[in-house]
Computed example of a mutant assay.
Amino acid sequence: MPSIRYNQLDSLRGLAAISVVIHHYLLIFPQFYEKTIDNSGYALVNFLKYTPLHIFFSGTQAVILFFVLSGFVLSLPFLNNINSSYSIYLTRRVTRIYIPYLVSLVIVLIAVKLFSEGVLTGFSPWANGKWSDPIDFKLIIDHLFLVGNFANGEYNPIYWSLVHEMRISILFPIIMIFIIKYKWKFSLLWSLIISAFGFVGTTLLSHANIETDYMLSLYYGLSFVIGALLAKHKDMLIKFFESKSKTVKILITILSIFLYTFPSWVLNFPVIPERLLNPPNTVMASIGAAMFIILALASKTIKKVLLFKPFQFFGDISYSLYLYHCIPLFVLLHQFNDKVTTWILLITSCIVSILLAVLSYYFVEKPSIKLGKKVSTKLKNQETNKKLAG
């Protein structure tokens, strides 16, 4: 399946990955983790997390952006009539996501075995919720299959999103049948209904003490659909943006930031029950993410910024940075939290994470992509030969 690539969207993914890194590095502090405005030395960060400036460390919204981007990018071959069998599609998707994931899983399990020291005194419940228990063989097997229901945040807190990414990717060609066949209003409507069903189902199962996150994949499927609809109507939306005045373009840009950070500046206060945050979070963040993509495609200024070499660099390594950034963080916290200043540990973690991401990109990701292309080409040749023989 030939790739259709917009380099500025790679940079957008890279910036989102950086915001996830910052988000997780701040989450180790109880003052940031707790839903409260603290007056300690972290008062500024605690204030910023309830404003649109939360965009710089909006980890949850960044994952929604990843999902919308996936829906956008995966839909392009279908929309451009680039025909390919399901086996070829799935081969490329699995080699793209699963092989780098599997290598990171091996590394994180080694790190847990060698460096975990139990409870981290003075750090948040989030930090102490990782690497706190001995390695479980059954949990490792669950991780190997990736798409099942398991404690997917035990070893690496980002794995949960890959579970949903793979589940939805497996079903995505079916989703595209509806996207291509029906008008956007109908596609969006049934997607909203399925997403609502997934959220309600998750809530009810949780109240019944049934631990499963299969329903959450239905819930997050909305973001993929929004991305696919965006790809389908991108030309019209780009023309719409380009036809507006400079003032209107600035207002659209500001609106996209407010929508993307909506859960932070409107709903993220302690008075709002946690269970009510997710639906508006996903809908608003998905719309904001979709607007970011249109801005990246239609705005010459934003496109120029995103094509800046350092942003391109982080776009290239974004998946590996996402996979690895928590591993050096937890290694250093467990080994040196009582010996070295926390901020030095964070800076060191950041540097090591980038180095690991670069190594992973060149020695794992690129070979995996190459393998996917090689296998899919072989499968395509086999399918062509069968058709000729028939």
Score class of each variant (00 low, 15 high):
Pro367Leu: 00
Val266His: 00
Met236Glu: 15
Met176Glu: 10
Leu267Phe: 12
Ile180His: 00
Thr121Leu: 13
Phe330Cys: 06
Ser132Tyr: 14
Phe72Glu: 03
Ser217Leu: 12
Val331Tyr: 07
Phe262Tyr: 14
Gln312Thr: 12
Phe336Cys: 05
Asn281Lys: 11
Ala62Thr: 05
Phe78Gln: 07
Ile226Ser: 00
Leu306Trp: 06
Pro77Arg: 06
Lys378Leu: 14
Arg93Trp: 06
Ala289Lys: 10
Thr341Met: 13
Ile250Gly: 09
His143Glu: 07
Leu333Asp: 09
Leu229Phe: 11
Lys249Trp: 10
Phe186Cys: 03
Leu79Ala: 00
Ser132Asp: 15
Lys366Cys: 00
Leu27Thr: 01
Ser349Asn: 10
Phe66His: 04
Leu321Tyr: 12
Val20Cys: 13
Ile272Gly: 08
Tyr6Val: 11
Lys234Asn: 05
Ile4Tyr: 13
Val283Leu: 15
Leu329Gln: 13
Val375Cys: 02
Asp316Ser: 14
Leu139Thr: 09
Leu79Gln: 06
Phe311Thr: 01
Phe308Arg: 00
Pro367Val: 01
Cys350Ile: 08
Ser320Thr: 10
Ile238Cys: 10
Ser84His: 14
Phe199Gln: 02
Gly153Ala: 12
Tyr319Thr: 02
Asn268Val: 04
Lys380His: 07
His325Asn: 11
Arg275His: 12
Arg93Gln: 03
Leu53Cys: 11
Ser299Phe: 07
Tyr101Asp: 00
Asn381Val: 07
Ser11Met: 03
Tyr25Asp: 09
Phe330Met: 12
Glu165Lys: 09
Ile97Glu: 00
Gly372Arg: 05
Leu237Lys: 06
Asn128Glu: 10
Pro157Phe: 09
Ser243Ile: 14
Pro134Trp: 03
Lys373Ser: 04
Leu102Thr: 05
Ile250Arg: 07
Ser245Val: 00
Met1Gly: 02
Leu76Gln: 13
